[in-house]
Design a protein around this nucleic acid. Structure first.
Lengths: 125, 125
DNA sequence: CGATTTGTTATAATATATATAGAACAGAAT
DNA sequence: ATTCTGTTCTATATATATTATAACAAATCG
């Protein structure tokens, strides 16, 4: 996997990891059922600490995006278990809310926002 | 202004403030040109520290949403100065990106996401 | 003008979050 | 049986968040 970590960013490393793994899944570079690298090897690749990768994996598990098999590893959730739970939908809505609000305030209309989203969807798929 | 601060939240207080003020502007409860409460009185109302409110105001200024008049106060930016700068648009896009990615991963389609956004726009306006 | 209010600045203290390091352990994989 | 896995623990360093005071100069108001 080809991902870029910026230690200087205001976004914590473990979050950068989480987001880029999610983008990797969205774009199909990571397929459902596929195993993620071990926390140790991944950490070595990225030049970060093992625990930082581990934290990201557990955040992904909390989001219901990966399944962690104890003492074994992390696996991208399959489409069966990846079912857009009410909780997950609510989470995305909660994330989207401040973004939409700020967009509206700086003068974006419904069409602008829809267009921006469409652009991102194409860019991520 | 009627806003709810949750000190226990994982979202920092100053960010909660920032987001809710933005929502207040989006919904018209706060009008362009209107002055925000003084950092002291607002802090007293909310039961938080003066500096926490001050931090939120400066974050809003950085976003180009309010204008800070030195030694005087913070004012909601007018529609003239609130012009959807390229920088601001890029910022919103950067905020939107991980949200869309996560939405796609949990199985939401373009229509689902558009619908969710539409719902939020109505809810915020 | 005089008093109050304003943001600003500085210092300090505390708590939490982030990140790294090293070690040890028990279960899984080979 | 050996290696690899996540897990757990201790420890440390840094950054962020929040509160608490205090003081100051500029703006505001009576």
């Amino acid at each position: 996997m080809f991902l870029q970590i910026e230690p200087q960013s205001d976004v914590p490393i473990y979050m950068q990891l989480t987001q880029q793994i999610i983008e990797g899944i969205a774009s199909g570079q990571l397929k459902p059922g596929e195993a993620l690298p071990s926390v140790r090897s991944f950490a070595a690749d990225l030049g970060v600490n093992m625990h930082t990768v581990n934290k990201s994996y557990h955040e992904l598990e909390k989001k219901g995006i990966v399944r962690i098999i104890p003492k074994s590893g992390a696996v991208v959730a399959g489409p069966n278990e990846l079912g857009a739970t009410d909780v997950q939908l609510q989470q995305v809505e909660q994330m989207l809310r401040p973004v939409v609000a700020e967009g509206l305030v700086i003068g974006l209309g419904e069409q602008d926002l829809q267009q921006l989203m469409q652009k991102l969807i194409k860019n991520l798929s």
